[in-house]
């Protein structure tokens, strides 16, 4: 039992110069490409100087005129939302089911969730395109959605699974039942609210990942269902400023989603032990 009164040794220290140097190097490497992209998107000419010669929002206004801008945004959004929904429908009940009724299947589940990491995007795309070469599914957005779900399953799984394991479902269920709740009530009033942070985090992660997905979109469907990243790649060969603008949009969405995820998990996946400790 540690003496609770003693503060940590070295609680207020200063970083050494080597530490500072290392972290500065790290920050430069990570941030310069991002910052450069942001600035480039609003620059007029920028090929000879450290900072742009002028600033303009023309890049953004130009691309907004392109009909494909809205189309690709819509496509990516639809794809992302569809992936999230499919993930929720497939994964959440499965995780709950295994956790409560079929613990023996957990190793199988873990294995299936590791599998996508061992399959490169191009390989999955190749196999799907070759197997599903009949209409109507051949090279359709639905096939693409199926592929993105396969790829993002592990993220949803890990998020929900961690949450479910942190709360003591059997005990909560029994407590609720002893107070008169039937199974439907238990699920809707006790279980789901408590795994909601995990579900939300997982959904955000899946959304962000699918929104930025290029490989599967290009290879499985291609031009008939253009996604936002595909438009971006097109512009990298056509117009740098616009490409930068699209990158900015990409980055910004990613930032927002990351912050949202942090906020959700910060609000606390309240685990049973947390509650006990608080007493």
């Amino acid at each position: 039992m540690q003496e609770s009164k003693q503060p940590e040794k070295g609680e207020v220290g200063k970083p050494g110069w080597l530490q500072v140097l290392t972290i500065v190097f790290f920050l430069f490497y990570m941030l310069i490409p991002i910052i450069a992209t942001y600035i480039f998107s609003v620059a007029t000419r920028w090929d000879k100087t450290i900072l742009p010669e002028g600033y303009t929002l023309e890049g953004y206004t130009e691309v907004a005129k392109n009909p494909y801008f809205l189309i690709t945004l819509k496509n990516s959004l639809v794809l992302s939302v569809l992936s999230v929904v499919l993930n929720l429908v497939l994964i959440v009940p499965t995780v709950y089911w295994v956790h409560v009724h079929l613990h023996a299947a957990k190793p199988l589940l873990d294995l299936l969730m590791i599998l996508p990491f061992g399959i490169p995007g191009v390989v999955l795309a190749l196999s799907l395109v070759q197997v599903y070469n009949f209409q109507p599914i051949h090279r359709s957005p639905f096939l693409l959605a199926a592929a993105t779900v396969i790829f993002t399953m592990p993220y949803m799984y890990r998020s929900v699974s961690n949450n479910i394991e942190a709360i003591d479902i059997p005990t909560l269920t029994e407590a609720a039942q002893s107070l008169g709740a039937n199974m439907v009530n238990v699920l809707t009033r006790v279980i789901i609210p408590n795994i909601f942070p995990g579900i939300l985090s997982g959904s955000l992660l899946v959304f962000a990942t699918v929104f930025a997905e290029f490989t599967l979109a290009r290879l499985i469907v291609g031009a008939s269902f253009k996604t936002f990243p595909m438009l971006l790649v097109e512009y990298t060969r056509k117009d740098g400023t616009i490409a930068a603008g699209l990158s900015v949009i990409s980055f910004t969405i990613a930032w927002i989603v990351s912050l949202l995820i942090l906020w959700v998990s910060g609000k606390g996946i309240k685990s049973t032990s947390d509650v006990i400790k608080a007493r």
Binding site: M30, A36, L232, S250, F251
Partner: peptide
């Protein structure tokens, strides 16, 4: 680190072209 490790792809490639 959490955010930047997911930045692979076209935007990253283009950012490096800029830089």
């Amino acid at each position: 680190s959490d955010v930047t490790t997911n930045f692979a792809g076209a935007p990253l490639a283009f950012a490096f072209i800029i830089v």
